[in-house]
Design a protein around this nucleic acid. Structure first.
Lengths: 217, 217
DNA sequence: GTGATGCTATACTGGCCGGTATAGTAATCA
DNA sequence: TGATTACTATACCGGCCAGTATAGCATCAC
């Protein structure tokens, strides 16, 4: 029997000619995901992206309609990647502070990472483009994390470890405290050194304050 | 007697020709202070500033060396203007929460104002130029406010109203809580509506949490 | 093979912008 | 009055960039 190269069960490639190279598309997207956060929207030229991807500029335009489309896809990808999968599904047991500390470390490590800082800058740049993105990011980023952590807090409340009337607000407060002035300094780029000891001290103080505010009374 | 126009007691105008028009300089600076926050550094052209100031572009360059110099002077001016003069000098008396609420309202009103948001965006833009500025802003802005509030907290501690072991950290935490996710949403530009009721609710919850964490025990 | 399409290289258009040049007018001093 | 300087208007330079055009080569389906 003749094994036709075009399996009718697979998604039919409508166009007869040479198919687009998906690896090139990925390379372009990778370059965009790296360059946009590094240099901003205005600061990143399509030529630079094409060069970084090892591809001609026209190829970039054949895969993506224009600069804005590419930007949006790149940022959306980054959001998905950085989303912590399941950080809050631990059962409530033992000392609450001991359970909060790893969560605090993970969250701070996430938002304080250079890609997250770069991301944050892009989203707060106030561009027309970044507005649509910000709404999208808000749903898949902060909101999802808050819901997960609020869930954990509710379980802690039910287990009698904490007293949390409004878990979503408490979760939001916890994350705000965690970011704190350190995160602000980082986004501004005027962070002196930020030793690990300082960070750990900050995390401990944050968990401490949070537990004092929401301890059972 | 002849009243010479050149009073030797006044600062001597070294140059013989026509003096620079200080009003024009002020107009340029005003335009820059308005346009830079609105449109960012890259997004604001020197032509636009000259036009907005009702002045020729060359006059702009005669008063300011280049775009970066103008940017720095404009932002520095804004920082000085928005600095809250003395917000924390109230004596500690009566219910602490009642004293914290006006501070919370004032601080939130300040950082949530459109000029502050625009300012914040500029400082976190990550430009080479904004780095120097951020350090400068850090001293005259957040640090000064934290010192003032930390002073208030220390007095509250000494009066037995609160129990604050580390006033500076507590002050930082209070401000972080106050900004919270609302401020983040604003800087991203995806704030839905933000009714006054929501804001007041947020402020009350913040003060409440803060007092619970730092109440005397 | 044939035809259709993807990719590359290069060059180009049109526009914006930072900064400069020129030439003329206005204001101030001696 | 004359010298000097500020200011305006306009034009220009050089550079960067988004996006397009052209022409040739590469790769796929049939």
């Amino acid at each position: 029997m003749t094994k036709t190269a075009c399996d009718p069960l697979l998604p039919r490639n409508a166009s007869p000619g040479r198919p687009k190279d998906l690896e090139k598309r990925a390379a372009i997207l990778d370059a965009a995901k790296r360059l946009f956060p590094e240099q901003g929207f205005d600061g990143t030229s399509m030529d630079a992206i094409a060069t970084a991807a090892g591809v001609s500029k026209l190829t970039v335009y054949s895969h993506f309609n224009d600069k804005e489309s590419l930007f949006i896809e790149a940022i959306r990808d980054r959001c998905d990647e950085q989303l912590p999968v399941s950080m809050f599904d631990a059962a409530v047991s033992g000392d609450v502070s001991d359970q909060l500390m790893p969560i605090a470390r993970a969250f701070f490590g996430l938002v304080a990472s250079p890609p997250s800082i770069a991301m944050h800058r892009l989203l707060t740049a106030g561009t027309k483009t970044s507005d649509k993105l910000a709404r999208l990011f808000w749903k898949v980023g902060p909101v999802r994390a808050q819901e997960g952590f609020a869930c954990f807090l509710q379980r802690a409340d039910e287990a009698g470890k904490l007293q949390v009337a409004d878990p979503m607000r408490a979760a939001s407060q916890f994350f705000s405290l965690l970011k704190g002035e350190l995160h602000l300094q980082m986004t501004m780029g005027c962070c002196e050194k930020l030793s690990d000891a300082m960070i750990e001290e900050h995390l401990v103080a944050t968990v401490d304050t949070f537990v004092r505010a929401y301890q059972r009374r």
